[in-house]
Structures are given as structure tokens and as C-alpha cells.
């Protein structure tokens, strides 16, 4: 981010372009005077893979730019032996940005262990992704509450302002995703699926902002969302759904026994595919962007930098598209799975 700032001073118009199109990846820029970005970046040699992995993964600090651009997030840990502890993650770093032990805890590769026993503790810290999650939730609440207020204000009138912007999206989710896949009883799944769609879309888009965390490209986040869909699918699954799994109708008896494990595996491949698809799509996008930016630093060439920046702008536009498509796909498949499990008995 240091380059970002120094460039911004020199070329103010550039900052607007960068702000619009540059992803969090900008933080990966290295100036002519390489500085320690993190523990992994202590050495002067530019390590692209470390920078990229550092960006796409969770962290206890939020590194925006060097020389004071680091936000030390709160650490919340719980262990049976020592109970709950809350302190700043600053305590884990000394002035040279090396990890140190604090209150009997030590930080090792983003995991917190107890010094004496070496056991991992339950880490409920507000990490970079948790902070991003809270930001995402706040933005969602503020924006969508404003939309909701619009409907109260313009009751019986044509939509206006932010309302007109979101209404087609909401109607699209309802009429193109939820209704055709779930059918008659679609209404009770609307809050979940709409929240899912907007959470993923906002998360994806916010993740593309400079300095932002890779929230929806984190496997824990995608896994949680997929598991929620899995729970809803199986809780709401009707007799038809379960009979298809355990005693597939219309199949010869010996085959039913063969099909049974396949069907059971099938139950779990659905959330698995949901988890992996979103995680891979978003993380891969970030990695591609960061790799292109890193090219300039690996080859130490301004020419490459210019070309790769242009490519990055292009890829970023694609990423905006991917952000929306992935939200659509995740919601579509969730609706499809719920629809399949709750379908009215039809014999085929």
C-alpha cells in the first residue's frame, strides 16, 4: 500500500482509477525500498506466493499499508484451563514485528496456542475476516434497511432512489431463483435465500475493494453457508426426499442397495460442492489479480507493471461479474436443493 499512497500524492487522478479498480491486492505493491510487510516478508527478496497467501488468508491483524497502516484486531480466546481472555493482537508483536508470547499464549501461523501445554485454544478473535464479516453485515443492514424504509415511505407509489436499484435484483432472486426451484411454498425460504444472495454478493464485491479481506473466499465462511443450506434441506426434506435416499423407488431391489451409499454420499456432496465452488471462484480471482500485480515486482520492470496493471483492471471487471454470478449460483443451488427435498410427491 505504500506505493499506492506515494503514487496518490503525485498523481491524484490515478488514485480514483485505482480506488475504482484495484483490489485489496494493492497492499501487495512493493516500493523501490522494500519494507517488511509481515513476518513472512522480512527478507528483502520479494516472495510473491507468501504475499498472495498472506492476503487471501485470515489474520489477527489487518495490514493496510506499511508504517502504521496496520490495525491490531482484538484477540478473544477461550480455554478450559484459563477461561476467557480478551486483549489486543498488538501484544503478540514486538517493535520488529516478530511474534512474542503474551499472557501464556503464543501466536503461530495465525493459530493461538498455550505456551505451557502447546494446546490450541478456542480462538474467537475478531480476525481480519471476522471484522470484514461485521463490516459486510453492517453494510447489508444499512443498505437493505434503507431499501425497506423506501417501501414504507413510498407505500402504494412507484419505487424511488435506492429502492429502484435493488427492486429488480430482489424480484430477480424471487422470480428466477426461488420460485421456479422451490415452487408453491417458496415464501418461507425467501428471507434465507435473499440474505444468502446479498451476503455473498456484497461480500464478493467488498472483497474486491483495496485493502479489503477475502471474506467470501474463505473456506470457513463458504462452509458455514453450505452447512446452513444442508441443514435446511434435511430438516425440511419430506418423505419423498428420504425415500429417494434410502429406498429409491422404481429401481430393482439389488440396485437399491448399491444406490443407497451413492445417495448418502450425494447428500454430502451437495454442500461440499457449494463450499468449494464459492471458495475457489473468489480465492482464485484474488490470486490471479495478485499474481499479475506481483509480476511487476518479480521481474522488477515498470513496463511489465503498466501492462499487468491494465490486465488487472480488465480482470477486475471480470471479477465484478464473477462476484454477482457466484452469488447467483450459490443461491440457485441452495434453492434447487431445498426445492428437491421439499418437492410435492411426483412419481416418475
Amino acid at each position: 500500500m505504500s506505493v499506492f499512497l506515494s503514487l496518490a500524492k503525485r498523481f491524484p487522478s490515478l488514485i480514483i482509477l485505482l480506488l475504482l479498480f484495484m483490489p485489496a491486492a494493492v497492499s501487495a505493491f512493493q516500493d523501490s525500498h522494500p519494507v517488511a510487510e509481515d513476518v513472512v516478508l522480512e527478507e528483502r527478496e520479494f516472495d510473491a506466493s507468501a504475499v498472495i497467501l498472506h492476503h487471501v488468508m485470515d489474520d489477527h491483524i489487518w495490514h493496510l499499508w506499511d508504517h502504521g497502516g496496520t490495525i491490531y484486531l482484538p484477540v478473544i480466546v477461550y480455554s478450559a484451563e484459563k477461561g476467557l481472555a480478551v486483549f489486543s493482537s498488538h501484544n503478540f508483536y514486538d517493535e520488529h514485528h516478530n511474534t512474542v508470547e503474551y499472557r501464556g499464549y503464543k501466536l503461530d501461523h495465525n493459530h493461538i496456542y498455550m505456551v505451557e501445554t502447546g494446546k490450541a485454544v478456542l480462538d474467537l478473535s475478531i480476525t481480519k475476516n471476522v471484522a470484514m464479516l461485521l463490516i459486510n453485515a453492517t453494510v447489508l443492514l444499512l443498505v437493505l434497511a434503507a431499501v425497506g424504509r423506501g417501501y414504507k415511505k413510498n407505500k402504494g407509489k412507484a419505487p424511488s432512489g435506492i429502492q429502484s436499484f435493488f427492486e429488480p435484483v430482489i424480484v430477480f432472486v424471487r422470480d428466477e431463483i426461488v420460485k421456479p426451484n422451490i415452487g408453491r411454498h417458496y415464501e418461507k425460504y425467501m428471507p434465507y435465500l435473499l440474505t444468502l444472495f446479498f451476503f455473498i454478493m456484497f461480500g464478493n464485491l467488498l472483497g474486491l475493494l483495496p485493502g479489503a479481506a477475502n471474506l467470501t473466499g474463505n473456506i470457513a465462511v463458504t462452509l458455514t453457508l453450505a452447512v446452513l443450506t444442508f441443514i435446511i434441506t434435511n430438516v425440511k426434506g419430506n418423505r419423498g426426499y428420504w425415500s429417494h435416499i434410502f429406498w429409491t423407488p422404481g429401481v430393482p431391489l439389488p440396485l437399491r442397495i448399491v444406490i443407497l451409499p451413492v445417495e448418502i454420499i450425494g447428500m454430502f456432496t451437495k454442500p461440499f460442492s457449494l463450499t468449494i465452488r464459492l471458495f475457489v471462484a473468489i480465492t482464485a480471482g484474488h490470486i490471479v489479480l495478485l499474481s499479475l500485480i506481483s509480476l511487476a515486482f518479480i521481474l522488477k520492470s515498470i513496463g511489465v507493471g503498466v501492462i499487468s496493471s491494465l490486465v488487472v483492471v480488465f480482470i477486475n471487471l471480470i471479477e465484478i461479474l464473477v462476484a454477482v454470478i457466484q452469488a447467483y449460483v450459490f443461491t440457485l443451488f441452495s434453492a434447487l436443493y431445498i426445492g428437491m427435498a421439499t418437492a410435492e410427491a411426483e412419481h416418475h
Binding site: 471476522v130 474463505n218 470457513a220
Partner: peptide, 9 residues
């Protein structure tokens, strides 16, 4: 997947 993030999420 990190446990803390799963809980928060």
C-alpha cells in the same frame, strides 16, 4: 476452515 470464523459466521 478456522473454528472461530465458523462460529462468528
Amino acid at each position: 476452515p478456522g473454528t472461530g470464523l465458523i462460529i462468528w459466521q
